[in-house]
Computed example of a mutant assay.
Amino acid sequence: MASLIQTLAVAEYLNFRHAAKALGAAQSSVSARVKALEDDLGILLFERHARGVRLTDAGRHFVEQVTVGIDQLDHAVKTASMVGAGRQGRLRIGICALTSGGFLDQLLSKYREVHPGIDIDMTEGTARKTMMQLRADRLDIVFVAGAPEPPDFHARCIWAEPLIAALPDHHPLAGNSAVAWPDLSGETFLVRHGGTGPQAYDHILLRFAGNFSAPTIQRLDVGRSALLSMVAQGFGITIVGAATSLMPASGVTFLPFSDELEPVPFSAVWSPFNRSAALRNLLDLANAMERQVRTG
């Protein structure tokens, strides 16, 4: 590499002495390295004369090609350095839902602001689906409802949200300040197949198990907006995290639960073998924001 750099300097200045001065090297050293390179290549790169040198045709072609190669190498080194520092690269994120104004939305917005060089690929799906993609190394990190403890991954609770009941505006309980699970006995619950639907389904069964009459639960292959629209139209009720109540939902009343003492945790899950600086920076930012929310 030193021989190539010195050869390029001589090609630029067309003078060994000037090239050596620019490089901060001895003229004899530069001359010797260039001569050794010519011997190795078996071609004459420079024609020497009393006032300096000039490139041969072979030398001109060689210098042009080497310049391109060194520029590419320099770009590769700089790019690798930026990726290693988390300033450039790609982050593949799996989510169960993303609500405008919610913690995850704020986290990703802040991350993109602080790390504009990172391209974010987002995949939405159930916890089971995104975990399968994580295990297949198709995702770098997933955010799921609950506090999982997978034996093969790191998991950390990042934020929590109160559980909210979503009722149609014309529901008899819509005028209350809060609801309790016994109030909802006999109701028809609507839950999604996707997103956090499976966790909502399990939670409803858990709350009614052995306490009240078994609920009617309809599982639907719809998005959150369609689900809330069906609630507004009186097809049934549902349960959501508090962030969902920030969504515009005409005809829907959101009420907190008086008998849900703990908010619903949401966790990040990632591989212990993933050394991505972009991932580390996201986790650090999530921790800082979580602390700010807790102390603020």
Rank of each mutant, 00 (worst) to 15 (best):
N274W: 00
L220D: 11
L134Y: 01
Q72P: 00
R60Y: 09
M230S: 11
R17P: 00
R92S: 13
T188C: 06
G24W: 06
L279C: 02
G42S: 09
D169C: 07
S29N: 12
Q133K: 15
G86K: 03
L228R: 08
T56M: 02
V179D: 05
W159K: 00
N274Y: 03
R192C: 10
I158D: 03
N287V: 14
L8A: 08
P272M: 10
Q218L: 15
I5C: 07
D284K: 03
V252N: 12
T56I: 05
G24A: 02
L206C: 11
V30F: 00
R224S: 10
G102N: 01
Q199W: 08
R54I: 09
I5A: 13
R224I: 11
E38H: 05
A127P: 00
C96W: 01
Q133T: 03
Q72A: 13
I118W: 10
A80H: 12
I5W: 03
A97F: 08
E149Q: 15
A136H: 08
K110H: 06
F62K: 00
T216V: 15
K110R: 15
L14Y: 06
D137L: 10
F62S: 00
L173M: 07
A80S: 13
D140I: 08
G194D: 12
W270Y: 14
A50Y: 05
H61D: 13
A180H: 08
V231I: 14
R51A: 13
K110A: 14
E187K: 10
T7P: 01
G69Y: 03
P256A: 01
T79A: 13
E161D: 08
L261W: 05
E161N: 07
L206I: 03
A180Q: 13
F257M: 11
L206S: 15
R54K: 12
S81E: 14
H61I: 09
A9D: 09
R33L: 09
P272H: 07
E12G: 01
A58K: 15
I93F: 01
L184N: 03
L107T: 04
V53K: 00
P116E: 07
F46C: 07
M230Q: 12
S245V: 09
E12N: 05
G234Y: 13
E187G: 11
T216S: 15
R138F: 08
L167R: 06
A19T: 09
S276H: 06
M131H: 12
T56S: 06
E290K: 03
R156S: 09
S31G: 04
G210T: 03
